[in-house]
């Protein structure tokens, strides 16, 4: 199947000369929920802005629903709904009017029933005649989501939707996203919380310094994340693994000085006790033990460190 959003070799250099996207490739499948995970300044907003048309790409292409977002921008953009990171609403407009405006901008005829459904789903119905400046921050964010859904988009972008958002809204939002998924709507959200990506996404993409480091199915990613390696240094090097110890998770280093055991920290049992017993049964003397996280965990720890430094 052709991806609903196809980003190829996308580059963005801002006027000041800063390169915010360094050749991004990303294929997003129809109906999936993709979380873009990355620290502040990674380029998440720039990527979304360039796909949606707020910023112009320096190089590369974006296709939405098969339509180029520059040469065929009408058909490409008609498919998109965007909830921006920063709250931006015209203060004197009523909720109903501002949501209607978005629908009109996207070229859709008036449809009060659809707007009513969207507003009710987001618990905004009783606020429909309120001016946006009278609303709380959380309510404003709901209005932004309602605007993005006003024209029934096929692809929804949520840029850091839960930053500073209360529990109720977060729950309503995930409920909405799940319902949209049932209708075949694709959702792309950005976050810098791995827990959030884990909770809602089908696939997770990690972005850092304008580069996509990896995009992976959530389950696979979580399994890889949970893996650790136990290194057992031996007093005497051995030429081969003793037959009694042979298994998928155990290997010998090239010089024969150590054994590497890979295990899953979330499993019921790690198998370490059994391994150590088997080692002494085999008569191998241990000099030292150490554990390391999988490379992926390192990435995330790195992300968090950058975050703290910022």
């Amino acid at each position: 199947m052709t991806p609903i959003v196809d980003v190829s070799n996308l580059r963005k250099t801002y006027d000041g000369g800063f390169e915010a996207l360094k050749g991004v490739n990303l294929a997003i499948e129809q109906g999936e929920i993709l979380a873009l995970l990355g620290p502040n300044g990674a380029g998440k907003t720039t990527l979304i802005s360039t796909i949606c048309g707020i910023t112009r790409a320096t190089a590369g292409h974006v296709r939405v629903g098969g339509f180029d977002n520059v040469t065929d921008f009408r058909r490409a953009r008609a498919l998109i709904g965007l909830v921006p990171q920063e709250i931006a609403l015209e203060p004197f407009e009523t909720v109903w009017n501002t949501v209607s405006l978005t629908r009109g901008l996207y070229g859709k005829p008036r449809d009060d029933a659809h707007l009513e459904k969207v507003l009710k789903q987001l618990s905004l119905w009783d606020k429909k005649d309120a001016r946006t400046m009278e609303l709380s921050g959380g309510m404003k964010r709901r209005v932004l989501i309602a605007k993005a859904l006003s024209h029934a988009p096929r692809v929804l972008f949520l840029d850091e939707p839960t930053a500073g958002v209360d529990v109720d809204l977060r729950r309503d939002m995930w409920e909405t996203v799940k319902q949209l998924k049932e209708d075949g709507v694709t959702t792309i959200l950005t976050t810098h919380y791995i827990e959030e990506a884990e909770a809602i996404a089908d696939r997770i993409g990690v972005i850092r310094k304008g580069e996509i480091l990896l995009v992976e199915d959530k389950q696979t990613l979580m399994r890889r994340m949970a893996q650790k390696e136990l290194r057992i240094d031996l007093v005497q090097p051995v030429a081969d693994l003793p037959a009694a110890l042979a298994g998928d998770n155990l290997r010998l280093t090239d010089d024969g000085h150590a054994l590497i055991y890979t295990y899953d920290t979330t499993g019921e049992r790690t198998g370490i006790t059994r391994l150590l017993a088997a080692l002494s049964d085999a008569g191998l003397a241990m000099k030292d033990l150490s554990t390391t996280q999988s490379s992926l965990e390192d990435i995330f720890v790195g992300l968090v460190k950058e975050e703290d430094a910022a």
């Binding site: 953009r77 965007l82 920063e86 931006a88 405006l101 901008l105 070229g107």
Partner: peptide
């Protein structure tokens, strides 16, 4: 106000 984003992303 920042609401210009809407006009910039709409199919217009």
């Amino acid at each position: 106000t920042g609401t210009i984003y809407e006009v910039l992303t709409a199919p217009v």
